[in-house]
Design a binder for these strands. Structure first.
Lengths: 153, 153
DNA sequence: AATTTTTAAGTGTATATACACATATTATGA
DNA sequence: TCATAATATGTGTATATACACTTAAAAATT
């Protein structure tokens, strides 16, 4: 290997070992699969579960506000909600401001949430126990810091 | 709110505040956008960049092995590679074992990697500096622990 | 050697994600 | 008030992701 090629190879090692987005995405894939499996009996996907939770917490809210909360592109949210509407978990109604659409949980949506919560708790407990509470809280804090850091500007 | 509804509401708060997959996916979305923007001039998407890095490190390798390394579903990798082949970054050739396909970097692929590396370095430095080295390393370790934890079984 | 099992990869389908652009409605300013 | 700017949302397109199922080839078993 030439000196230049060696340099590039070393940089690649650095990427694999320390790249934030590489490791974060990898962990995201792994953990998503774990929670997807856990939530499957409820009929909710991870994304749908978290969206329902968010709507339950904030109450009926507009798409843009929900997207901002989820740190999700607005158009991504539109597509996700469309699917959830088709499945009957939510509906959207026009707001007072006629440009807005307000997201509302349906009864089936609330029921699915109720079914999913114990499944989530079990999965969550497994992860927390395996990682250790201290480590888990540490990671959570770091993830939140990362989000606000990138979201800030 | 009934007592039961209050209980569900409290659980939802718990999910928002502490759910591993919720916070991990949120951070993943945020950080992905940051790195996508940084890498854009190179013509590589984040996924493509990390895949090229992996192939550069491991040398030509099969799809299954690469998928395992990336903690990525094999069929996901197939689709990602198809795209990268169309764009000319890689090719695949049959292995000695005729069931296997071996992934090989092309010259344009290597060039794109070379262009992307300084862009990655800049983005990475920004994140590490903003989070602080100690915090960053801590997060990295925790992410890796999470991956091996979920991957183990 | 022939049959069965295992392994490597691809396809059909569904969901998740976001950028560029278009449309409709509200707010602002001349 | 009317024209313009700002805001909220939707659509077209491209990429990322994985499950269920299929196909082809190698390995194991009888």
């Amino acid at each position: 290997m030439s000196e230049k090629e060696q340099k590039i190879f070393d940089k690649c090692r650095q990427v694999a070992q320390s790249c934030a987005v590489f490791n974060l995405r990898k962990a995201s894939r792994a953990l998503t699969q774990f929670y997807e499996t856990a939530l499957r009996p409820s009929g909710l996907r991870v994304t749908q579960f978290t969206l329902i939770v968010a709507v339950r917490l904030f109450g009926s809210t507009t798409i843009s506000r929900l997207a901002d909360t989820m740190v999700m592109d607005r158009t991504t949210l539109t597509r996700n909600l469309k699917l959830m509407e088709k499945k009957g978990f939510i509906t959207t109604i026009p707001g007072e401001d006629r440009r807005e659409r307000v997201v509302v949980l349906t009864e089936p949506g609330k029921e699915s949430l109720e079914n999913a919560l114990p499944l989530w708790e079990k999965a969550q407990r497994e992860i927390v126990d395996a990682l250790g509470h201290r480590r888990f809280d540490e990671m959570l804090a770091n993830l939140m810091a990362t989000v606000s850091l990138v979201k800030a500007p």
